[in-house]
Nucleic acid binder design. Structure first.
Length: 618
RNA sequence: GCCGACAUAGCUCAGUUGGUAGAGCAGCUGUUUUGUAAACAGCGGGUCGUGGGUUCGAGUCCCUCUGUCGGCUCCA
């Protein structure tokens, strides 16, 4: 119908949305008693929420639904729009037993919108902006299926491109965990079969890179039922990754005047009552019981309150500011079991946390320095950054006056603009004590994750009555700038492992050099040992594979573990003192196979590791 | 926490309508002394995640718990 003058994006959107209707058509045919929720377009496709009562649907039912959808598509039913008065619409929903639709329509009638941010306005038969006098609502009909919908749709069910149903999962009605749970059926859809295949191939690739799979294969971390869910254990190899990342982050901040501090992992609950965290996150703290005192202790879920106490430990002059603390440390949060997964969501979270206490006139300088540090870090790590300005919304989830918030939000935006960063703004994403600059990294497959964060906070210093003396001898509250460059090291690792597919650059690779012996003769073994020692003295992580196996097999083993440099040592090398290193393919700039003296080679690799390059100069 | 699926050897998996477990890789031992992605042979290894139930008999059927996965909700 309205597909003329539409951009390809709009057309694809209409296709996906039409597919949601077609899926609902197919499900209604197979299960006439189904109650429908909403069926919007999502990133790569669409879904529809349905309620089939107790029996429900399982993934085994998807092929049958897909087949039915193909029938509907083959029937090429035109999509027809019509409208009816809202009271008539409500009567329709009632009569059809569509209780969810009825609820939506009633909300619509009452307030002109479904109020919450839960429903995409397109789902409804009206535009939700503007006045609340809803007289008529819009419907779409294809064949004998009718759905409340504003559109637009494609002209007929035959014009929907290529799709595939992916999975069925649970979803709360209108996104509220107090509401009944429906089943959500997800599909992906593209304009052409080719794009669909490409998308599915991308998903396959993502599966291969899954950090949980690579964590297993590359021996990076493990879990134990005895230790518990969300508490990964890092092997020697995985620990190297953690420590190298922490070291990098610490270096960047120390260069900017941050000083390391240390704070204990348990604290009196009172600290968090004062900060406001107890009221907001009390049910997510691990409680610790003392057998000696009557105080209640908790595992620390974050560090800001501790750092305020270091600041507050003595009088501060305006000349002392900024005072900057960095604390790369583990915090503990009792995350709900269903939210845990791999390294992306854990209960022991290591943050590269830092707090700068500064004067108002120093805010800009602090933020600029941190933005620059983040830029350097992600440049080195090879991840693209995009900035999200996370503001508060009108809910009561925040503390502090609106004026302070407005001023803080303005300053963050000014800083981001001054640094020419690519940004977007989002309300309702702020921390409860202040707005944030959140940095989203895009990985090798184009997926986005929140990593670094810079937060401006006028509230915490007030709550802890922090002060410094200004040049007129007047007490002033400092401003706190919270920052984490990596965010959570565990979560960052999950992103980074998948981004690199486990092919870590030499500076962070758990094993940087592997020496393979051609035979087990004593001279060879001794020579290999000597080279390994030399490498260790240069600060390299090196291992020797002296197994009684073929060279081919040992090469393969090194390759499988994605070791950057493999040195095969035999008679030739012993005689000449020269070697042609085997370099992991992704690091190679030019293809020429060159030989080097072993001394020169190791020094170059050590230098590369130190300067954190991603390609080799060999 | 909620909805759904899953849990067999270190890893990846097979195991027919219920009749007390198999393969490949890895490991160990021996032979071989290897030249750039998998030499050959032998051996060891599993109270089938936990606890309970049904049954003459449970890896297989039912329940509980734990854990994992896909989502929802949440994320200082």
């Amino acid at each position: 119908m309205q597909e003329d003058n539409q951009s390809p994006e709009q057309q694809l959107h209409a296709m996906r949305h039409s597919l949601a209707h077609i899926m609902a058509t197919a499900i209604t045919r197979k299960f006439p008693h189904v109650k429908l929720g909403v069926g919007p377009v999502v990133q790569h496709g669409f879904y529809y929420d349905i309620d089939l009562g107790k029996a429900g649907l399982s993934e085994e039912d998807l092929p049958a639904i897909e087949a039915e959808m193909k029938k509907v598509i083959a029937e090429d039913q035109p999509f027809e729009q019509f409208s009816m008065p809202i009271d008539e619409a409500i009567a329709w929903a009632q009569q059809a037993g569509q209780t969810y639709k009825e609820e939506l329509l009633n909300d619509l009638k009452r307030s002109g919108t479904t109020s919450a941010k839960d429903i995409d306005s397109e789902e409804l038969g009206v535009a939700t902006d503007g006045d609340s006098q809803v007289a008529n609502v819009s419907f779409y009909r294809n064949g004998d299926f009718t759905d409340l919908c504003r559109g637009p749709h494609v002209a007929s069910t035959g014009k929907v491109g290529a799709f595939k149903l992916m999975r069925v999962s649970g979803a709360y009605w209108r996104g509220k965990d107090t509401n009944p749970q429906m089943q959500r059926i997800y599909g992906v859809a593209f304009a052409t079969e080719k794009e669909l295949r490409q998308h599915l191939a991308l998903l396959e690739e993502a599966k291969k890179r899954d950090h949980r799979k690579l964590g297993q294969e590359l021996d990076l971390f493990v879990s134990s039922d005895l230790v518990g869910a969300g508490l990964p254990l890092f092997t020697p190899r995985g620990t190297v990754l953690r420590e190298e990342l922490a070291r990098f982050s610490n270096e960047l901040r120390e260069r900017n005047g941050f000083q390391k501090v240390f704070t204990p992992h348990i604290t009196k609950q009172e600290l968090y009552e004062k900060s406001g965290h107890w009221a907001k996150f009390g049910d997510e703290l691990f409680l610790v019981k003392s057998q000696e005192t009557s105080d209640n202790f908790v595992m620390k879920p974050m560090n800001c309150p501790h750092h305020t106490q270091i600041f507050a430990s003595k009088p501060r002059s305006y000349r002392d500011l900024p005072i900057r603390y960095l604390d790369t440390t583990t915090v503990y949060r009792d995350e709900k079991t269903g939210e845990l997964g791999g390294l992306s969501r854990v209960r022991a979270i290591t943050q590269d946390d830092s707090h700068a206490f500064c004067r108002r006139d120093q805010i800009e300088g602090e933020i600029n320095a941190l933005l620059a540090a983040a830029h350097e870090m992600y440049e080195t790590l090879g991840l693209q950054l995009q900035v999200r300005l996370s503001y508060r919304d009108d809910s009561d989830a925040y503390i502090g006056s609106k004026e302070l918030w407005q001023s803080a939000q303005n300053q963050l935006k000014a800083a981001v603009m001054a640094n020419n960063l690519d940004y977007f703004e989002e309300e309702g994403e702020a921390a409860f004590y202040g707005p944030k600059i959140d940095m989203m990294a895009s990985d090798a497959l184009g997926r986005q994750f929140q990593v670094a964060t810079v937060q401006l906070d006028f509230v915490m210093p007030q709550r802890f009555e922090l002060e410094y003396t200004d040049e007129h001898g007047v007490k002033q509250p400092p401003v706190m700038v919270h920052c984490a460059l990596l965010g959570s090291i565990e979560r960052f690792l999950s992103v980074y492992i998948e981004h690199t597919a486990g092919k870590f650059p030499v500076w962070i690779a758990p094993e940087q050099v592997r020496i393979i012996t051609v035979n087990q003769e004593d001279v060879t073994t001794r020579f290999a040992g000597k080279i390994a020692q030399q490498a260790r003295e240069l600060g390299l992580r090196v291992s020797i594979d002296n197994d009684n196996e073929s060279v081919g097999k040992k090469i393969r083993a090194a390759e499988v573990m994605k070791v950057p440099y493999t040195l095969v040592i035999g008679e030739k090398e012993m005689q000449t003192g020269e070697i042609t290193p085997r370099i992991r393919r992704d690091m190679v700039v030019n293809e020429t196979q060159q030989s080097y003296t072993i001394d020169e080679l190791l020094k170059t690799v050590a230098h590369e590791a130190k300067s954190r390059v991603s390609k080799t100069s060999l």
